[in-house]
Amino acid sequence: MTALPSQVPELLQNRRFQVAGNAQGLSGAGTVFEYQVDGSAITSTYKGGKIRTGHQVGHVTGPNTFELLFHCITIDGEILSGRSRGKVDVDETGRITLSFVWAWLSGASGGGESSYVELVLQ
């Protein structure tokens, strides 16, 4: 079986995203994620809102999918970690969107779904 080329690296590299929806999580509209990609390896940093600082590490899993492990420290000093499976897409306005299904691994329980939209400089 031949793997299909992935659009994930091109659509994430050096891009910034803000939260569009995350009813069950801590990140919100004030949280900004900055992604870097090296081959199939993905890293990011994030902060803002209730998040003092956070990091993600993961890899590409398909043509438009990826998985991540994440950890953060909140403005209240809590340390949390989790994992997510994500999908990258482009909306009708041409902005890149991310959608996730995620779960806490440490520091909290449960999980949910979230979505991000690319921050475009004016």
Rank of each mutant, 00 (worst) to 15 (best):
M1Y: 10
M1P: 14
T2G: 12
T2E: 10
T2A: 12
L4P: 04
P5S: 07
S6I: 08
Q7C: 05
V8T: 05
P9S: 02
E10N: 12
L12S: 01
L12C: 02
Q13D: 03
N14R: 14
N14T: 09
R16G: 05
R16V: 04
F17L: 08
F17C: 11
V19G: 01
V19H: 01
A20F: 00
N22W: 00
Q24G: 01
G25H: 02
L26M: 07
G30L: 02
V32S: 04
V32N: 04
V32E: 02
F33N: 04
F33K: 06
E34N: 14
E34G: 11
Y35C: 00
Q36P: 03
Q36I: 03
Q36G: 06
Q36Y: 04
Q36R: 08
V37Q: 00
D38W: 04
D38Y: 06
G39N: 08
G39W: 02
A41C: 06
I42A: 00
I42G: 01
T43I: 05
S44D: 07
S44R: 05
T45G: 15
T45Q: 15
T45N: 14
Y46S: 00
Y46D: 00
K47S: 15
G48A: 06
G49N: 02
K50S: 13
K50D: 05
I51V: 10
R52E: 13
T53C: 07
T53I: 13
T53P: 03
G54Q: 03
Q56K: 11
Q56W: 07
V57N: 13
G58Q: 13
G58Y: 12
H59V: 09
H59E: 14
V60G: 05
T61C: 09
T61I: 07
G62H: 12
P63L: 08
P63A: 15
N64C: 05
N64S: 14
E67F: 03
L68E: 14
L68G: 11
L69W: 08
L69M: 13
H71G: 15
C72S: 08
I73D: 08
T74E: 08
T74S: 11
D76C: 04
G77Q: 02
I79L: 12
I79M: 12
I79F: 14
G82W: 10
G82V: 10
G82Y: 09
G82N: 09
R83L: 10
R83C: 11
R83V: 08
R85K: 12
R85G: 09
G86I: 07
K87E: 12
K87G: 02
K87F: 04
V90E: 05
D91E: 01
D91T: 03
D91W: 08
D91N: 15
D91L: 07
T93C: 04
T93Y: 09
G94F: 05
I96D: 00
T97Y: 00
S99P: 03
F100G: 10
F100I: 05
W102N: 11
W104R: 10
W104H: 14
L105H: 08
S106R: 14
S106F: 09
G107A: 06
A108Y: 08
A108I: 07
S109M: 06
G110M: 05
G110Q: 06
G110I: 06
G112I: 03
G112D: 10
E113G: 05
E113I: 06
E113L: 06
S115M: 01
S115P: 00
Y116R: 03
V117M: 09
E118P: 09
L119K: 11
L119H: 04
V120G: 11
V120R: 15
V120L: 13
L121N: 15
